[in-house]
Nucleic acid binder design. Structure first.
Lengths: 143, 143
DNA sequence: CTCCGATGGTCAGCGTCCCTGACTGATATG
DNA sequence: CATATCAGTCAGGGACGCTGACCATCGGAG
């Protein structure tokens, strides 16, 4: 095979972390979380967010986001509360069960980062992250 | 937001290249290629490959691979020929139209790589690629 | 204050992609 | 030649995201 393109190598790394985190979350007993639910759930905070904003940030339609929030709500990861400033809107806020999953996911991310640091050395990992961050300036169309 | 995880930065880079290549392919008149078709088509060569092997390498079931090969065949990107060494099997070989798309895709990949080299400098890009390749040793479960 | 266009959100229906399970036909091995 | 194995297809279903149509509320212009 030809020399793999850097983007393919990036894809492999990203996929690995996704699977590690997903595995940890399932092992911790949150098997009812699908990848799609997890993607929108990753954007939640205590403050609450509107479905429309959630959709925009997740780059999906508000209809799709609405369905995913339905599922997250049914599984007790989030709650919908009325927006006190706008009677049309409702805020999606993270629930206790949602906070638990976030903790599990972040712990696994940190674990992977430690493994990478052991494998490459702290310096090369830092350089790698720096270069990726610089590349983001020309590859990330959304900020 | 917290400091983004390196894996997120990798994902952004990989997604960018995927969209660039996909855009170039569509602009070149191959709009009937879906992402799923492209993913399996990327593993084709002159020698031919069995649907079962294609499925395994693409990490999808042979049923899914079979459907995608159907579509690729209908759109003239590949042909199915009998396997001379096994009467049960048929080989999926790339057709002229398939070779054309591969050329377009590779050209766009090289273009992106040049842009990245301009942005980071050849040395940092090489170091980035090296580090990613080393990381692959512990993140790529499939060789 | 009253319109009326813009905005937040849902409902209905559809297409793509990938899966599982069951099956057909050909091959290899005893 | 009986049987286990292998290549591949058929049938059906679930997850995910899209478009289009619609309703309620908001907020600025007249």
């Amino acid at each position: 095979m030809r020399e793999p393109h850097p983007a393919l190598l990036m894809f492999i790394g990203a996929r690995y972390v996704e699977q590690r985190v997903s595995g940890a979350v399932i092992a911790a007993g949150y098997g009812d979380l699908t990848p799609a639910m997890a993607r929108v759930a990753a954007r939640l905070s205590e403050d609450g967010i509107r479905v429309t904003d959630l959709a925009e940030q997740s780059r999906i339609t508000k209809q799709s986001a609405s369905v995913l929030v339905d599922q997250l709500e049914r599984a007790a990861y989030v709650e919908r509360v009325p927006d006190p400033t706008d009677a049309r809107a409702r805020l999606v806020v993270i629930a206790p069960r949602g906070r638990e999953v976030q903790r599990v996911a972040r712990r696994e991310e940190r674990a992977v980062e430690r493994e990478w640091s052991r494998h490459l050395g702290a310096e090369r990992l830092a350089a790698l992250t720096d270069a990726l961050r610089d590349l983001r300036e020309i590859t990330d169309p959304y900020r």
